[in-house]
Structure formats: structure tokens, C-alpha cells
């Protein structure tokens, strides 16, 4: 069979496949009726076969690149990712996230020490020597914080300005962005992540020490204790995820750097996604619960319970799944 006869006899097949591919452009294959899916599958294999034939006989680059692109587009449409299922989301929250988190616990502890360490030290130093706060916070920032927290806890109008919904939006946008950037900067050999952790630790510590030295400890801790459980932990978690990326580049082990980054990155992104969800939860508490005119003692109780909840969740959730869910989940990602 020569080239012309071959092209002549195969052309209807190619045209039909071309039509199906163009029609599906961008859409999912499951939109087609059953018969056409069967046709598509058959035609795709035929086109692939024709491509191989043309390659092996050397029947010309134009024809080869035509069939190559036809097959390539067909391939991309044919193999699309499995649909996301709601049960997978539940699974991720109840066991996937804490499992991946615990599998990489040492990155978290490193970020934890950097963040809470700098926070604690700055807090202690500033509380004992209040004028030092000027080294960290600008005078008008100090004044703003002072005003924010010196309101009467029983008045409905909180000193925080703006309504609850506004503050919720603000916290979600601002705080979650900080966490994501803290993670992304891990790519800069960890310098960016460590900087973000220390910067936020020092700023929060200084604010805490300053306000408590002013005698506003009830208002401040009452405000912070509940959402702080999710928020402060989530910053350390996202920092840990960022450090996973850095360590993949610095200590790739037996793998190449790129390969190490890919493998570690797949776990880091899951940890980061969990941290982002924690941040959003924190934002809701921070906007509605924390400034609410409720007795401080009650807030202390709820806040303490929240800390216990976060710690229990991260430490224990998903432990009863003895079947190594983590492995299977990562395996699926690799093979998807």
C-alpha cells in the first residue's frame, strides 16, 4: 500500500476523530453519548496506530505532525483526571491531613520553635521592658492597638472598627495570604519561610508584651485565645510545609533535586492546604466569636478547649486507620 492509498482510505477515520476532538475541546469526555465514547476510544486507538505506521514508513513530516497533534489532543481529552468526590474531601479532613502532617512532624517542630520561640522571647522581653516595643512597632501602630483593646468589654460596639462580616473577609484574605506566601517562600532555600516565621513571631510577641504591660491582659488574651489556637498553629504548620520544600532542595538525599522537590512537594501541598483551611476557620472565630461581648472567663474556657481540640486533632485524627491511608493516597496521586 502506498502513501496515497493509505491516506485516502484512512482519511474518513481521521476526519471523524477530528470532529469528535474539536467538539469536545475543553469539555469532559463523559458529555458524549455512550455510543460516541465507544467510537472515540476505537478511533483514538486507530489514529495512534496510523501514526505509528506513518512514522515507521517515513511517510512525511507534514502528515506525521498532523496525526501527532490529532492523537495528542485526543489523548489529552481521553485521559482527564478522575472527578473530585465529596467523600475525598471528608477523608482529607478527618485523616488525610493529620496523617501527612504527622509523617512530616519534624518540619513542623522546626517552624514551631522558630515562630513560637521568637514570639515567646519577644513577649517576655517587651513585657518586662515596655519601652523596647518601639523597636518593633511604630508609634501609631502602638496607639492603634492600645485603642483597639481598651474598649469596655461590655459595650456592644467593639473597638475593632467595621462589622463582623468585613473583618471575616479581611482576616481570610490577609492571614491566609500570609500563610500561603510563607509556604511558597520555602522555595527560596527556606530563607523566605524562616524570615516570615520570625517576622510574625516577633511582631505578635511584641504586641502581646506591650498590651499586657499596659494592663490590658484580660481584653487581649480574651480576644486572642480562641482563634489563636487555629491561627498561630496554622502559621507554624504552613511554615513547616515551606521548610519541606526547602529541605528537598538543600538535602535531596538519594534523589535528584527536582525529583525530591516533586515528591516532597506533593506532601507539602497537602499540609499547606490543611493549614489554609485552619486559617479560614480561625478567621471565622476571629470575626464573630473573639470580639463578641461575652464574659472573659467564658472565653478563656472555650479558648482552652479549642487549643485542646487543635492539638488532639493534629496528634490523633486518622490514627486508627491502620491501612496506611497516606501511602495509598500518595500512590494514587503518582499514578493518577
Amino acid at each position: 500500500m502506498n502513501k496515497r492509498e493509505f491516506v485516502k482510505s484512512r482519511k474518513p477515520t481521521w476526519k471523524r476523530f477530528e470532529y469528535l476532538v474539536e467538539r469536545l475541546s475543553g469539555g469532559a469526555i463523559k458529555r458524549l453519548p455512550a455510543q460516541e465514547i465507544a467510537d472515540y476510544s476505537q478511533l483514538f486507538r486507530e489514529v495512534s496506530n496510523d501514526l505509528a505506521t506513518i512514522r515507521s514508513r517515513g511517510w512525511g513530516q507534514d502528515l506525521e505532525s498532523y496525526l501527532n497533534h490529532l492523537a495528542a489532543r485526543g489523548h489529552n481529552t481521553y485521559y482527564s483526571a478522575p472527578p473530585a468526590r465529596f467523600s475525598r474531601v471528608i477523608h482529607f479532613l478527618t485523616s488525610g491531613f493529620p496523617q501527612v502532617f504527622r509523617a512530616n512532624i519534624w518540619y513542623f517542630w522546626t517552624a514551631f520553635v522558630l515562630f513560637f520561640g521568637s514570639l515567646g522571647v519577644t513577649w517576655a522581653v517587651v513585657q518586662n521592658n515596655p519601652p523596647l516595643v518601639g523597636k518593633v512597632l511604630a508609634p501609631d501602630t502602638q496607639e492603634m492597638y492600645e485603642k483597639m483593646y481598651s474598649h469596655d468589654p461590655d459595650r456592644k460596639d467593639t473597638g475593632f472598627g467595621g462589622g463582623n462580616v468585613f473583618m471575616q473577609g479581611f482576616y481570610i484574605k490577609n492571614n491566609t495570604s500570609i500563610a500561603i506566601e510563607c509556604f511558597a517562600r520555602g522555595l527560596l532555600l527556606g530563607v523566605g519561610t524562616v524570615y516570615t516565621l520570625l517576622y510574625n513571631g516577633i511582631a505578635i510577641g511584641a504586641t502581646a508584651g506591650y498590651l499586657i504591660s499596659l494592663g490590658l491582659s484580660q481584653q487581649f488574651i480574651g480576644f486572642v485565645i480562641t482563634h489563636g489556637s487555629f491561627e498561630l498553629t496554622a502559621i507554624a504548620v504552613s511554615g513547616g510545609a515551606g521548610l519541606m520544600l526547602s529541605n528537598a532542595i538543600i538535602h535531596p538525599g538519594q534523589r535528584t533535586r527536582v525529583e525530591a522537590l516533586r515528591v516532597r512537594g506533593m506532601e507539602a501541598i497537602q499540609v499547606m492546604f490543611g493549614a489554609a483551611i485552619m486559617m479560614v476557620i480561625a478567621a471565622v472565630f476571629e470575626a464573630y466569636w473573639s470580639p463578641a461581648p461575652i464574659s472573659v472567663v467564658f472565653k478563656y474556657v472555650v479558648g482552652t478547649l479549642m487549643w485542646a481540640l487543635v492539638i488532639t486533632y493534629l496528634a490523633l485524627a486518622g490514627r486508627d486507620h491502620h491501612t496506611r491511608n497516606l501511602q495509598s493516597e500518595l500512590g494514587e496521586i503518582d499514578a493518577a
Binding site: H75, R185, A268, I269, Q270, I333, A336
Partner: peptide
Amino acid sequence: GYPINFWTSLLRNFLRPV
């Protein structure tokens, strides 16, 4: 050669800030 899924997309897009 295979299609990307949620996590792959999330990773490449969360790293955009850098």
C-alpha cells in the same frame, strides 16, 4: 503526559507568589 489533578494544580498555583 497524563492530566493534572487537584493537588498538582494547587501546588503549582500556591507557589505563584515566588
